[in-house]
C-alpha cells in the first residue's frame, strides 16, 4: 500500500538529488567523507537515518529491497525500515540476498558474495575513524587532507602493547585505494576482507553526523595492521549450531539461566538457505519428515 501523501521513497526530489550528488562525489573519491544536509527522518537517530536517506536516494520503483540488522532480516529495525519503504516507495522487498538490488545493512556484510548491479547501504553511527584519537573535527579533516595517519597506527600499537594483539574487533579501520583511512561502520572485522574488490557498490550514510562516503565496485581496501601483527579476520571458533557452517560469522546466544549457549549464523538468509539445502548443525532437529 503506497501512501500517496508522500513523495516516492519519502524524501522530496530535491533532497534526493542533493543526496545523490553527495553519493556521486563519494564514489568519485573513494573513502572520502562527503558532508550532506541530513534531513529529519521519522525515526530516531541511531536507527539508521543516514542509511535510510541513502537508500531513499537510490531506490527506483523497479528495485527489490532487503534490509538486515546484524545480519538478520527479522529484527525490529530491519522489519520497520523494510515496512517504511514498502509503504512510501511501494518497492518489492525480499529476504533473499541474491534477489535484492538494494540492501540496507546495519553492522554486517551478507555471507553470499554480492554481484554487479547490487547496492549495499551501510548505516554508520560514527564515520570518523580518527574521532577517538583526535576529538577536533577541524583537525581530523586536516589529517585526512594531508594523509597524516600516524595516529591511526598508534591506536593499533596501543592495542598490541596492552593486549598482546590488535584487540579492535569491529569498526576496524581500513585504507582505501592507498589514500583515505575509513571507518567501515561497526561491522565485525571478520567482514573486512569482503570490503575490498567487491562487485557491488557500497555506500555509507551517517545521518546524525551528516556524512556520506562510498566504495565503488572493485575498490582496493586494506585493513591497517603491522607486518609482525598482521590483520586477522577472526570469528568464534565454532560451527553454526543450526546449519553446520564453519565459515560464516556467528552470533552467540545464551539459551537458559545455567549458561548454556549456542552459536548460529548471524546472516539469517544464508543460514536458512543452507538448512533448506539439507545442511544440519549440532542443535538441528534430527527428524525431518
Amino acid at each position: 500500500m503506497t501512501d500517496q501523501a508522500y513523495n516516492f521513497a519519502y524524501l522530496d526530489e530535491q533532497t534526493k538529488r542533493m543526496i545523490r550528488r553527495a553519493i556521486l562525489k563519494g564514489i568519485a573519491v573513494p573513502g572520502y567523507q562527503v558532508p550532506f544536509a541530513s534531513r529529519e527522518m521519522p525515526m530516531p537517530y541511531g536507527w539508521g537515518t543516514g542509511g535510510v536517506q541513502v537508500t531513499a536516494a537510490c531506490l527506483t520503483p523497479e528495485d527489490v529491497l532487503k534490509v538486515i540488522d546484524q545480519g538478520a532480516d527479522d529484527t525490529t529495525n530491519a522489519v520497520s525500515i523494510r515496512a517504511f519503504f514498502a509503504r512510501t516507495a511501494g518497492v518489492a522487498t525480499t529476504e533473499a540476498t541474491a534477489q535484492a538490488s538494494v540492501i540496507q545493512t546495519r553492522h554486517r556484510i551478507p555471507e553470499a558474495p554480492l554481484t554487479e548491479g547490487q547496492i549495499l547501504v551501510y548505516q554508520v553511527p560514527i564515520p570518523e575513524p580518527l574521532r577517538f584519537l583526535e576529538p577536533r573535527e577541524s583537525e581530523t579533516r586536516r589529517m585526512h587532507a594531508l594523509e597524516d595517519y600516524g595516529l591511526m597506527h598508534v591506536k593499533l600499537y596501543e592495542d598490541i602493547a596492552r593486549h598482546g594483539e590488535i584487540a579492535t574487533a569491529y569498526a576496524y579501520p581500513v585504507k582505501v585505494e592507498g589514500r583515505y583511512v575509513m571507518d567501515p561502520s561497526p561491522i565485525p572485522k571478520f567482514d573486512n576482507p569482503k570490503l575490498g574488490g567487491m562487485a557491488a557498490i557500497q555506500l555509507f550514510g551517517a545521518g546524525r553526523e551528516q556524512r556520506i562516503y562510498a566504495l565503488p565496485p572493485y575498490t582496493r581496501v586494506v585493513s591497517l595492521d603491522f607486518e609482525d601483527h598482521p590483520f586477522v579476520a577472526s570469528k568464534a571458533d565454532h560451527a553454526c549450531d543450526l546449519c553446520g557452517s564453519e565459515v560464516s560469522y556467528l552470533d552467540e546466544v545464551i539459551t537458559d539461566d545455567r549458561g548454556s549457549r549456542m552459536f548460529c549464523c548471524s546472516d539469517t538468509d544464508y543460514c536458512a538457505g543452507r538448512r533448506d539445502a539439507g545442511h544440519r548443525g549440532r542443535l538441528s532437529p534430527e527428524e525431518v519428515a
Binding site: 600516524g150 598508534v154 596501543e158 602493547a161 609482525d228 601483527h229
Partner: peptide, 26 residues
Amino acid sequence: RMGVSAGGNVGERLMAVGARNYGAIR
C-alpha cells in the same frame, strides 16, 4: 599524547612516516 603509552608517544612519528613493524617500532 597524555592518554597514549610512552612507547606509543615515541613511536608515533615513526608510524607517521610509514614504520609498520611493531617489534621494530617498540
